[in-house]
Amino acid sequence: MSSPSASKTKWANPHIPKHFPLVLVASLILVGVCVLASLVLGSRLLGWKELMDGLFHPDVDSYGANIVRKRISRTVFSLLSGAALGVSGALMQSVTRNPIADPSILGVNTGASLFVVCGIAFLNISTANEYIWLALAGAAITAVFVFGIGSMGSGGATPIKLVLAGAATSAALASLVSAIMIPRSYVMDQFRFWQVGSVGSASWSGIATFAPFLAFGILAALVTAPALNALALGDDVATGLGVRTGILRMVAALAGVLLCGATTALAGPIGFVGLIATHVTRLMLGSDLRFVIPMSAISGAVILTISDIIGRLLGSPGELEVGVVTAFVGAPLLILLAMRSKVRSL
């Protein structure tokens, strides 16, 4: 068994994963490919001239160039939303020490949805700013509630108890959402497209509203990453290394909720991106959060953008919402992870 001083040295000076430079360069190239594909592919395939006109010639008012300009905001928003969900998933897994924690699995998305639908039904909200604050409140309250329920009984907040608490809470809140919507047709019309999860309605004003929450959440995640590494060794060891575990969990959880809630407010409850992104990252780089968090942001951005492109191609001439595509991929992965013995804790 290693001594506390050895553990402290390992925590304070983690080695750089052998393949990190290669993985980083390959991931950034993949981001560039995704951006290009997102601008060109869709219900209408665009040519090189239309792409150049849309990007560099604002005076050109052709149909193809206008489509490119609309797809730019959509692409930027899908990249930012995917990054936010990837980092949120990494934070929630670290705070709960649960390798299958994800905003959608723990019911956080559904809590945000409930508050948004209540705002539409009872407060007549309709703007991105109003959506965000209500979604953040719903996400935070649900996260606290699920963690409290999952912590009851012997053994504390075990991974399986948290997942069961999240699933039960999500089902109950989804029933409340339906109960509010069904008697109110105008609420259903406004809410049903948002509920599926889509980046198709992205706008620059929405991105501007979303950006401060994204910046704060990712900054907080990067700052807390070294201490979260210590937390993975256990609360007693982390405390011995000088980590204030209570404050650390609160800050990291707040950052995760901000990232998830802000994304859900504008894009709807998109599930499984955080789960997929973090596990792909850990498979390539290991469990050091100094590298897992930034690479989860890149992985999440790539996953959500690719899912959006697939949805546009499969649903042509319309589109298949990105939340449906991520669910098709994420649900089997969740089942596989739940069947593995390593699901007990991180």
Rank of each mutant, 00 (worst) to 15 (best):
C260S: 15
L275W: 08
I120Y: 14
V325H: 11
V116I: 15
A167Q: 07
G54D: 04
M250G: 13
G311A: 09
K70P: 00
A327S: 14
F122C: 04
L136G: 06
N98H: 05
A179P: 00
L337V: 12
N229S: 04
V33M: 12
V60D: 04
T264Q: 02
I16M: 15
Q93G: 07
V223L: 14
P317W: 08
A301R: 00
P269R: 04
G286W: 07
I29R: 05
P269V: 07
T245R: 10
A232E: 13
L51P: 02
K70L: 15
S104G: 14
L214Q: 07
G54M: 04
V257I: 11
G155Y: 00
L46Q: 05
I132L: 06
L24W: 00
S88G: 09
S88L: 03
K10H: 14
Y186N: 15
P99Y: 06
L36E: 13
A174T: 14
L106S: 05
P317M: 11
A128I: 11
M1V: 08
L214G: 06
V196S: 07
S151P: 09
L228K: 07
L259E: 06
M339D: 11
L51R: 08
D53A: 07
M181C: 13
A135T: 02
G32K: 04
M284V: 10
A83D: 03
F213D: 03
F291G: 06
S5P: 02
A208S: 12
T75M: 07
M188S: 15
N66Q: 15
R74M: 10
V117T: 08
V302D: 00
I120T: 13
S299R: 07
A101N: 02
I16Q: 11
E319C: 06
G156V: 02
T169W: 04
G268A: 11
S62I: 05
I207E: 02
L106Y: 02
G300I: 07
S201F: 09
L219K: 01
G89M: 11
G242F: 11
M92Y: 06
V329E: 10
S73A: 15
L80S: 00
A143E: 03
G261Q: 05
A262R: 12
V40S: 12
T264G: 09
S2K: 09
L285N: 12
P332S: 08
L30H: 03
S287M: 08
G155T: 09
A277F: 11
A227K: 14
A83N: 01
I72Q: 01
R97V: 02
G323C: 07
M284L: 15
S62R: 01
F20M: 10
F20E: 08
D53K: 02
M52A: 13
I100P: 01
L222W: 01
L114A: 12
G246S: 11
E319F: 08
S3V: 01
T169H: 04
I303H: 02
P17H: 10
A112F: 05
L337C: 00
F210K: 05
I218N: 03
G42T: 07
T281C: 11
S81I: 10
M295T: 06
I293A: 03
L222R: 01
L162P: 05
V95H: 13
R312M: 09
G242M: 11
